[in-house]
Design a protein around this nucleic acid. Structure first.
Lengths: 100, 100
DNA sequence: TTGACATATTGATATTCTTCTATATAATCG
DNA sequence: CGATTATATAGAAGAATATCAATATGTCAA
């Protein structure tokens, strides 16, 4: 398997401490933007900005609930991206089964 | 498993197209800095700079051979880092066995 | 429709990162 | 040692990114 833009997009989306904190907070249940901003020491626009990057990399799912917008990590997608990175850069390492 | 600086360091090291190309070129056999620079359209200092970042994240191993320095992806370390990311941010996803 | 609330977008600023040229360090050979 | 080759480091310029305040957009309730 060869590298392509996907692996770069994925790594860039992951390559920020604030984004990783956001992802840790909404890895296992939907969380609103406001809740995220409140739990972290950054402003709401900053959270929105990071969420848009995560959305772009398809690492989160979005669900509107009234006036709130709930975000949650797309665990399957994230796990697949991780596997893909391993397949590309560590192809000889004994590893989980590929999905292709 | 909780996130820590390691996952950020790992993602940042991976988050550059040039570095991913370097890693693809030396994923499966040792390659010298000069060879890398020649195969890519960047200068030798640029390659050295990126290699130092990869070294810092322990994603490559280094071996001196005469005056050349050979770099190679540490596949085991890379695969483990990938698994760790999946464990942290997709803990509920059915996945490869953890090493701890 | 108006007012209140939740999120997204804009624009500005500061920081971080990538890349280059120039130079230093390290190793080998005559 | 001095010359040559290979890699690393330093310093600077430009691009990309993170963050904030201000504001726009969208949604609900009265």
């Amino acid at each position: 398997m060869k590298a392509d833009g996907d692996t770069v997009l994925f790594a860039k989306a992951l390559a920020d401490e604030t984004r990783q904190r956001i992802m840790a907070l909404c890895c296992c249940n939907p969380v609103s933007v406001g809740e995220l901003a409140e739990m972290m020491d950054v402003t709401q626009p900053t959270v929105s900005h990071h969420l848009s990057i995560l959305r772009n990399a398809r690492l989160v799912t979005v669900e509107r609930r009234g006036r709130q917008v709930l975000y949650q990590v797309d665990q399957e997608r994230l796990a697949k991206s991780c596997c893909r990175v391993a397949e590309v850069f560590a192809p000889e390492h004994p590893v989980q089964a590929s999905t292709e």
